[in-house]
Nucleic acid binder design. Structure first.
Lengths: 345, 345
DNA sequence: ATGAAAGCGCTAACAC
DNA sequence: GTGTTAGCGCTTTCAT
């Protein structure tokens, strides 16, 4: 059997004082409550002696606060989200929170189960990059005044806390760069479901750039790749798209996973970047600095996203306790275009 | 204020039954306790109606089991560990556990704090890739009969649950491949602290392969790179090492981070792999399939490591409750050499 | 300067 | 078939 840990009661009994007193002391409120210095010393001595550790579970139950927050993303093993996780962990820790991390695999029912699981576990708040299509689940959270903040992806029509980047402008600028380099037949590889807002916004940015440049948008140049079969779908589409008659001279990969599959295919087929076709991606990952050639991409300010998300969440959590107004915050951060060899003639 | 959630008491009162009964029913033990079907129906109806969710915090406190496990690694944003995390999450979930993930940054005091934090939070068990040098902290866990399993890294002299790979043989085989390809002046880039067991074992495997092949080991060919400054240190060492007079024809990178920095340097300096110098790495990551040339590496069976770790941990947790003997398990899995272009003449 | 008692929400032993 | 009671470990109000 696991050794029974000593509780505040054991300390109190072995010292012949009340557990109230012990509680006061170990929470550093001895002076506040006027416990004599000498008694405080006695308590601390015993605490060290038996290596007493308060049971945070019990404390949480009593206080109605778990000092834990939940993070939900589509896949923690994706480079982008693991960087997000690391930064959220860092900022959360600074504020005394621990992190429960969950991956949804873009599965909506699963995401809903995870949200409920986190609530059942009494996490103090949730940070989520949601795959959901509508706001139903979040409306419930809002009704319950449950603290949460969306990151990366937002839900159309839902007024709530959100931290993300300007995907339209980020994409627009990147495409303008591409066009300025002389590329005029640019295909885009999006990912389904396209109702995911950043994906949709990137498509919008793409179209906008084409139009403003007098290139006409051709819907045959927009390929939708299913999330669960990226690798094969990308290759199939590329094979068809890159036939000489199509004269495609650049590809915009809407996220890092798509770009990776493109690179894989280009390598296999000995297709030269950017001579045969240029490549531009969203989401800057380490890999893009290591391939030959290096890959131009739109970088998101991950640190800043995480910092803001935690700040907002913490405010929300504390505001709840102080009964003041539940005010939503939307933060849209700028992206940063990293121009590398894959788009330079 | 956050809405007060309704508790088992509210259900009981509004139905005019005892909370015991409600508890029995919602735990699906109504039949077992002989609660009439009709009462059970009544309870379930009410539960749906008010959307009652049991407070897992309270349940955990009562049951002395949190259904949470902790995962400690050096850095969750490292590709290798994020893959580990994803797989641990998957297998843990299948057994009803959630995951609290922590990164240590190879900081030992920090790691100790994290272990204690997890204990305080009453996690049921810990899975850890430890940076610790000695067994002191783990001796304490063992004394407390606290379930834990080491993965990836073990602590010399500590008899405990462990799941990892045969680093010596994995490296030995990889080096033999390299030597068979004709490379005879092979430098190794290790990482400090070298007391980390897999690193040390890989060095051993390297030396063994050299000796068995009649190549003499030269300690100038072993470079130690500090964990917190990999990029610069690798470049500095490479610059010196690759001078023509040294005649180095192959580099063994002891983990993926080192390999990444090597590739970066090679690209910058237009050094050709494998013509100018061959490159072999430990830890297969996606990136190695995408670079030009592709990189040969020693692959660890991540899925299997995670599955075994969870199985052992779960056994340990349950064994504790059943008072039977605390038996340790050591699992050493084979690696898989992925031969790619970076080592083929 | 300290303690008694109540209660957070839940489960389980034991009644009836 | 169902209810009473005790208690998991903690904090807090109210006494003294």
């Amino acid at each position: 059997m696991k050794e029974k840990k000593n509780s505040i009661n054991d300390i109190a009994n072995s010292l012949g004082v009340s557990k109230t007193l012990v509680s006061m002391v170990i929470n550093n409120r001895g002076d506040e409550y006027g416990i004599s210095k000498i008694t405080q010393k006695k308590v601390w001595k015993k605490v060290k002696e038996v290596d007493y550790k308060p049971n945070l579970m019990a404390r949480s139950l009593r206080l109605g606060k778990s000092n834990t927050i939940g993070l939900i993303v589509s896949d923690i093993s994706n480079s982008f989200y693991s960087k997000i996780a690391r930064n959220i962990e860092r900022y959360a820790e600074a504020k005394g929170y621990n992190l429960i991390i969950c991956s949804t695999d873009e599965d909506i029912p699963r995401e809903i189960r995870l949200i409920n699981m986190l609530k059942d576990r009494q996490v103090d708040g949730i940070i989520i990059s949601s795959s959901q299509k509508d706001s139903a689940e979040f409306d419930l959270l809002i009704k319950d005044k449950y603290p949460f903040v969306l990151i990366d992806r937002y839900i159309p029509g839902l007024e709530t806390n959100y931290v993300g980047v300007d995907n339209i402008k980020g994409t627009y600028d990147a495409l303008m760069h591409l066009i300025k380099q002389g590329y005029d037949k640019i295909a885009v590889f999006a990912i389904t479901p396209t109702y995911i807002t950043p994906i949709n916004d990137r498509i919008v940015g793409y179209m906008k750039a084409l139009m403003d440049s007098g290139l006409n948008y051709n819907k045959n140049l927009l390929k939708e790749i299913p999330y669960n079969n990226i690798k094969h779908a990308v290759k199939d589409e590329l094979k068809k798209l890159l036939l000489p008659k199509n004269k495609i001279n650049a590809i915009f990969a809407i996220n890092n996973s798509i770009a990776i599959s493109c690179i894989e295919y280009f390598n296999e087929m000995h297709i030269k970047i950017p001579e045969d076709v240029a490549l531009l991606s969203f989401d800057d990952i380490d890999l893009f600095k290591l391939t030959i050639p290096t890959i131009t991409s739109v970088q998101q300010p991950i640190e800043e996203i995480c910092k803001q998300a935690i700040d907002i969440l913490e405010n929300q959590i504390n505001k709840n306790n102080s009964n003041s107004k539940y005010k939503m915050q939307k933060i849209i951060l700028p992206t940063n275009l990293k121009i590398r060899r894959s788009t330079i003639v």
